[in-house]
Write a protein that binds this DNA or RNA. Structure first.
Lengths: 340, 340
DNA sequence: CTGAAAGCGCTTACAG
DNA sequence: CTGAAAGCGCTTACAG
């Protein structure tokens, strides 16, 4: 493999000049056009690629981004990862992937590791359920940090998130518009701001309509969602059977659909169901799942944009992206029509 | 941040000794136990982590693994990625993630990039549809390479894959055991060895049973799977309606379930359906999807094991993992029973 | 506009 | 068993 010295020799200049042509830093150094062209030609002919290792060591910038996700198995995060990777690639940054499995110890370990590797920035997703103390521990970091999802408390780092409150409002209004009144919310782990916000948007909209909010909490897994529904719908249920479920995620909505099928409840006639996320399979289900599409990929690309601004030490504002209702047969029925 | 020099000073030794204690290379250098302990204590007290950048530059080993996947949005690959990441972490390797989106140009670009970053090894998944020439281009690589999935032609690199032929045999035998005779195979892109193997296992088993194989090819997306089924089942269909579908993937199986629902075909009474992959949602569908579970996570961990042996220049054999039939209601019906 | 040189933080023959 | 020193391949003040 060719090194900078080979290129310098070939072009008849010093390695300093080669570096200045091929790796213009933040404040570009003036180089004569003619010289620059010779260097570029030499680099091309030698198929020269500067060693990121050496470059990182010398410049204290590794060209690496650390991406921390809680769970790659959850369809939400790969979409974010794809967005991050996409934009990072455009910026000539490589992405180190870290899977915490929701373990705070592992999170701390990764953060330490990423710092040791001198990553230029860390993108942390799934930090929406971190306790104040866990967040405090992150304060120690001297690497630019960007969060995906609204953090639990005020923190010094920028974040990009979905407007979950508004998404939940849309979901609830949609069901109300269809004439449903006994709308239950099947929520995920309330510790996560994402889940809390969706629950809040639901409750607010119900109250505005003069109805009593009725939230069921679950751990967020479809298995637990099913169990919690069974408990609520079961014989011990104290109130009238719901006529609609707004689930906090598509995975929970799928659990609700399974529950309805097992109890021979017709969807949507007897039970309308709305999810949140618009996972790729949502449209393939029967009935198709009405849900809120969120731009997960964009979440990732914007996180990189924010990270780059932080690296350049620019001030940045948090970014909020809208969710968009995608009506399907699980609320409208075949050829159903929405009544606002 | 502490450097090796700080530790050396604190322990009263040279940096060479520190390095030998903290980073024993392939052939460990003898160090007096007492000295080693002093060094370790100093490192601990200073919270010293050797710079992977400097280490990589000096030793020509970066501690990085490049993971190339074709599509993070396909639920199959995040599972593999999780396995890779898991085991890599145990081995103190970090994982660079690369998403090719099925573009061969992008693949080549990534391979180049990963080499520039001096990754210790590359794990390539989704290379099961690479043409002979694309594989030849990879020959140039002087980095250990491990493939996930059986390559299209004989190559000099080890691979780990699922026994797709046998999995397809199991699926087909299962349907035959239930008395089905008009079993159709809904296949994915035939260029991929994975899909070709599943198709082959199906055809072989049908022939053995004295039945005519009947394969429908699709691009592999649920959308196209649905379209292809409609064409086959439609009025123009030349033969008797199938009584079972063995889909090459769960995503295609879900398309088949959607198609059955739209045509008011009862699953499994009128149409039994088997998938392949056992994606997390398969158990949540109604009816639950009978499918072949494949150890995707293990695929990833073994790939790292193979990579490490290749890095150590050991000889390695290809590894094949079994698929396992998971019977659910889409073939058995509620309380259904299997007749072998 | 260009170059000589120090330095980034390690590893690893070489000598003892 | 330990250390002095060269070197990995770059970047970046400093000097001209």
């Amino acid at each position: 493999v060719a090194t900078i010295a080979d290129v310098a020799r070939e072009a008849g200049v010093s390695i300093a000049t080669v570096s200045r042509v091929l790796s213009p830093g933040p404040l570009p150094h003036p180089v004569r056009a003619n010289t620059a062209e010779r260097v570029r030609a030499a680099a091309r002919s030698l198929n020269f690629v500067p060693s990121p290792l050496a470059r990182g060591l010398a410049s204290r910038r590794s060209g690496l981004i650390g991406l921390i996700v809680p769970d790659l198995a959850d369809p939400h995060y790969p979409q974010i990862a794809a967005g991050v990777e996409d934009r990072a690639r455009d910026a000539e940054l490589a992405v180190l992937i870290c899977n915490t499995l929701g373990d705070v110890g592992r999170l701390a370990e990764y953060v330490h590791l990423l710092q040791a590797r001198r990553v230029d920035a860390i993108v942390l997703s799934g930090g929406t359920s971190l306790s104040a103390e866990a967040l405090l521990a992150l304060q120690e970091i001297d690497v630019p940090l960007v969060l995906i999802g609204r953090p639990t408390s005020s923190v010094p780092w920028p974040h990009v998130s979905i407007d979950n409150v508004d998404g939940a409002r849309q979901a609830t209004r949609h069901l109300l518009g269809l004439g449903r009144r006994r709308i239950v919310h099947l929520g995920g782990a309330a510790l996560q701001t994402t889940m809390a916000d969706r629950s809040a948007g639901y409750a607010e909209t119900m109250l505005q309509a003069g109805l009593e909010p009725d939230s069921i909490e679950s751990t967020g897994t479809p298995e637990d969602g099913y169990v919690q529904l069974a408990r609520r719908f079961g014989p011990a249920a104290r109130s009238a059977r719901p006529d609609a479920v707004f689930a906090a995620t598509d995975r929970l909505a799928i659990a609700a659909m399974a529950y309805a099928a097992d109890r021979h409840l017709h969807v949507p006639d007897e039970l309308a169901i709305v999810g949140f996320d618009d996972i790729p399979l949502a449209a393939q289900l029967r009935p198709g799942l009405t849900t809120l599409a969120q731009p997960a990929h964009t979440l990732g690309t914007i996180a990189i944009d924010l990270a780059q601004r932080r690296i350049a030490d620019e001030a940045v504002q948090p970014v909020t992206l809208p969710a968009r209702l995608v009506p399907r047969a699980s609320t409208l029925g075949p050829g159903g029509r929405y009544v606002a």
